Amino acid sequence: MSISLRIERKSGGEPIEFIKGEITGFTYKNNSSINLSAKSTNLAHSLHIRSKIPLHSLPSVICNADNSNMLYTWENTEYKPDSEDYYRKCNIQVVRNENAIRDITFTHAYVDKYQEQIDTSKEILEFELVLKQKEDQLGKIQYTPQLELKETREQDQPDVSQKNTRRRI
């Protein structure tokens, strides 16, 4: 099984990519009600990503003069309404036996949390990245396979005729 992550800037340039098994863990969290008529002021979808990367595979600051394709630089980007680099398109894909079992794209992702630590004895950089989708763009999150809205609502309604129901994750 492998997990890949691709982060693209709207202004173009080289994307940030982790495709060679560097992503060691992934969690998708949704604290939003699936019922569209529910009243909630605290909607949130987030991707929690963990990684271990050998230090020798990181680009040098000299080779990447503007540092625009580094996670810690994106994390420190100041919010400006007209900034094209604050919100980015992020795709995470989980593949097993050459078949994608999860494929999620946040079209307007921003860094909610980023932390890294370097273990010099093992020459490894470990990081944890938490991404969230811009609140007014929650409807643009892309999932594969895509559920139809009607199916989603039906899944939210309990079926009293069945005592034991399972929900596939």
Rank of each mutant, 00 (worst) to 15 (best):
F127T: 03
I101S: 11
V130K: 11
I92P: 00
T107W: 03
A109P: 01
L131D: 10
K122A: 10
Q115K: 13
Q117N: 14
N99G: 00
S83L: 10
E135I: 15
D112I: 10
L125H: 04
Q137W: 09
T105I: 06
Y114K: 02
L71T: 00
D136V: 12
D103H: 08
D82N: 14
N99A: 03
I124F: 07
E78D: 06
E98D: 09
E123M: 12
K122N: 09
L138M: 15
K132S: 12
I118R: 02
Y114S: 04
E123A: 10
K132N: 09
E84R: 04
Y72I: 05
S121E: 11
N99K: 08
N99Y: 01
E75C: 13
D136W: 12
P81K: 14
Y110M: 11
C90W: 01
K80Y: 08
D85T: 09
E84V: 04
F106H: 08
Y87L: 10
K132A: 13
E84A: 02
L71E: 06
S83T: 05
Q115E: 13
E126F: 06
N97G: 11
L129W: 00
N69E: 10
Q117W: 03
V111D: 05
E116L: 06
D112K: 15
N99D: 04
Y79K: 04
L129S: 01
E126C: 03
P81W: 12
Q137T: 12
R96E: 01
I118P: 00
R88P: 00
E98A: 13
D112C: 14
D119G: 07
L131W: 06
K132Q: 14
M70K: 07
H108D: 14
L131Q: 05
I104A: 06
E128Y: 04
K122R: 11
E75N: 14
V94S: 00
N97E: 08
L125T: 00
T120S: 06
Q137C: 15
D82E: 15
V95M: 05
Q133A: 07
T77A: 12
V95D: 02
A100Y: 02
